[in-house]
């Protein structure tokens, strides 16, 4: 384990026009951490993940990956699973993964050659087995259950063997039973692939069950005259012990709030 944090976020702010979404965000995350992120709807959680992916750039402040400035565009070492529309509906399960994989090749070699293609196919089959979609190889997303679709999205994100995995409410649309299965799957992959994970969720129990650390985003400053003037920041940053049954006392009230907001937004 090295001394440099995997990710460090220094005084980051993000504004859209006159609206400040995030401000004064500071964070250091060690390699292998599983950070769960909670916060009210619209407070900037997805924006934060998109900045970690380089799909958005901070308006001010800096983000570093392994001690170096974050690359300007998405790179294979960071994968993301969106809440929806992550998989391509016009492609089969297998073709979804082929498309996800082909880009690196075409960037490096111009075209994938026979041998590379064979290896790619083997790797894809391997990933599909691992994620439990082996039998659904030739199906289209519309023929899959919600859980299977999210598995596919995860498979897509994992194909490049990312060191950082970003998950934006990946299980928001799933039934509780299927969620539990997905939790097992995700924790298994996290351990096996030694990834650093950031996962946004509206389900506070999920946040406590999965995370080694929880980040709460909220506004600390509020101007009733100008609701957009101030942004959210990280208000709680707590290590979690998975053996603990529930949230620590200081977050007990929050858990109740988050539960009701989940119910309302569902």
């Amino acid at each position: 384990m090295s001394a440099t944090p995997k990710i460090s976020v220094r005084n980051v702010a993000k504004t859209y026009g006159h609206m400040t979404v995030l401000e004064r965000v500071n964070l250091e995350v060690e390699e292998g951490a599983f950070c769960t992120i909670v916060g009210a709807s619209g407070c900037g959680k997805s924006t934060f993940l998109r900045m970690l992916l380089s799909q958005e750039t901070p308006s001010s402040g800096r983000i570093e990956l392994d001690g170096a400035p974050l690359p300007g565009e998405p790179t294979p070492d960071r994968g993301i699973v969106f809440q929806k529309y992550s998989v391509f509906s016009h492609l089969t399960v297998e073709d979804n993964l082929i498309l996800a994989r082909e880009f690196e090749r075409s960037r490096l070699l111009g075209r994938s050659f026979g041998k590379g293609r064979k290896a790619a196919r083997a790797e894809i089959n391997d990933t599909l087995e691992k994620i439990g979609l082996g039998a659904a190889r030739l199906k289209y997303p519309a023929q899959l259950s919600g859980g299977m679709q999210q598995r596919l999205a995860i498979a897509q994100a994992l194909l490049k063997r990312p060191k950082v995995l970003l998950l934006d409410e990946p299980f928001g649309a799933l039934d509780p039973g299927i969620r539990a299965d997905m939790h097992e799957l995700l924790l298994g992959l996290w351990e096996e692939l030694a990834m650093t994970v950031f996962m946004v969720t509206h389900d506070i129990r999920e946040a406590f069950k999965l995370g080694t650390r929880i980040l709460v985003f909220d506004k600390i400053r509020h101007d009733p005259q100008a609701p957009d003037a101030y942004g959210a920041t990280i208000t709680y940053d707590l290590p979690l012990n998975r053996k603990d049954a529930g949230p620590p006392p200081e977050l007990a009230g929050l858990a109740v709030n988050a539960d009701t907001s989940t119910g309302a937004s569902a």
Partner: peptide, 27 residues
Amino acid sequence: IPSGQLEAGAALGIRKATIFRKVVFPQ
């Protein structure tokens, strides 16, 4: 075409032209 499909493509590092050809156009 939902912008999420474009973002998903960009997140995978696929070039814009390729996203257009392989995702936007067929859909």
